[in-house]
Design a protein around this nucleic acid. Structure first.
Lengths: 129, 129
DNA sequence: GCTTGACTTCGAGTGCACTCGAAGGCGCAG
DNA sequence: CTGCGCCTTCGAGTGCACTCGAAGTCAAGC
């Protein structure tokens, strides 16, 4: 059924299972230029995700999950697609994103601490009566 | 101009400045039942934000900034509005949210570490050539 | 008394990121 | 050769949380 005879890459369903993205979303990302290259197709025209594709999707989900807008992921993909020579730009893009994420996580940690405090207040109030 | 003679509460513009929310958003939150009670009005019918209102808005922004949906904030406000007796429910709501936030922050920290690694790879590549 | 500017309500519009449905194609088990 | 299930494309729809514009009101300064 889903066993692979030789090495041919994953179907979109398998890629979906591995990455946690829906098949719809995987197609949407490719359409929107978020992939490094269009994914290879089998003789029947179906997508075959190579390990490098999967690795890219994983990185892509990390960027998305940390709040990078789709447009900026596309920008990053375009740079990577263009080949060598623009590493400084890619580095800058990633650094800028990292800084934003760090700042947001710090802020959220503060909020979390305040929420924890609120929880403790409730716990104490319930414990003493 | 914006000095307050006696103690009358903040105008919506002042509340906006203090909380970082737009006046539009403050009205929207009140309309949507996210406030504990409708905000008091001055003789002219304009909103006057009491310190307790501001404190609530601050808590509310903490919940929102950590990803609690507006509908759940409303639920929390409804419980608080209902008065005493439902503290266990409020506590449960906050705890559930806290757990989600903790889990997400942990996941994001992992993603951040992976992004940092990528950045280091770029840095090394650029440093050695 | 008239302008100014901040306020009001109401309802519609925006942006983002999916998410889904329709309509059809292909290859293989039975 | 027929039905099944998974695949395809295209374009439209959804959900969330604002965000904005229009039209009108009111108090205070000039």
């Amino acid at each position: 059924m889903s066993t692979v005879t030789a090495e041919a890459g994953l179907t979109i369903a398998q890629a979906s299972a591995v990455t946690g993205l829906s098949a719809h979303t995987l197609r949407y990302y490719e359409r929107d230029g978020l992939m490094l290259d269009p994914v290879d197709r089998d003789p029947g025209g179906r997508r075959r995700y190579a390990p490098t594709d999967i690795a890219w999707v994983v990185m892509l989900t990390r960027l998305r999950a940390t709040g990078m807008p789709v447009a900026q992921v596309r920008r990053y993909a375009e740079l990577a697609r263009a080949g060598e020579g623009n590493e400084p730009e890619r580095l800058e893009l990633l650094r800028a994103h990292r800084d934003l994420v760090r700042a947001r996580l710090a802020r959220e940690a503060e909020h979390l601490a305040a929420i924890d405090l609120k929880i403790e207040i409730y716990e104490n109030r319930l414990a003493t009566c």
